[in-house]
């Protein structure tokens, strides 16, 4: 983040920053495939809404600001299927508005 932007609230910038931080860690780990580690970490801790927003950023800008590892991780995630249970849960509570998980199916 540049100094001008670092404290302005910007969801996409914040998610990009987080993804890059995670990617920096996995890039340092032995064994290769840092993008897989990054993708798994993001999948474990990010909400579907956050995933939706980073996919939106990917689609809208080509992933501007994402490091190569983070960019690859987001692409991997976007290609993964939604958890099979999720759709059932959503249907059981009758929620269809703002169904942020749609994008998740990739």
């Amino acid at each position: 983040m540049s100094e001008e932007h670092e404290h302005r609230h910007d969801t996409a910038a914040r998610l990009v920053y987080m993804a890059n931080q995670i990617a920096t860690y996995f890039r340092s780990q032995p064994g290769g495939a840092p993008s897989l580690g990054t993708a798994d970490h993001i999948k474990s801790f990010w909400t579907p809404t956050m995933l939706r927003d980073i996919y939106k950023h990917l689609d809208g800008t080509g992933g501007q600001g994402l490091s190569p590892v983070a960019l690859e991780a987001v692409r991997i995630l976007k290609a993964r299927p939604t958890h099979k249970k999720l759709q059932g849960v959503l249907e059981s509570v009758g929620e269809h508005s703002r169904m942020e998980h749609g994008d998740d199916a990739g």
Partner: peptide
């Protein structure tokens, strides 16, 4: 006795970010 959400939820800073975003 009910189905549970299989996806992670929001952390505190994410809740605040999401609030500022109006969600």
């Amino acid at each position: 006795g009910l189905d549970l959400d299989p996806e992670p939820g929001l952390r505190i800073p994410n809740m605040l970010d999401s609030a500022v975003d109006g969600e």
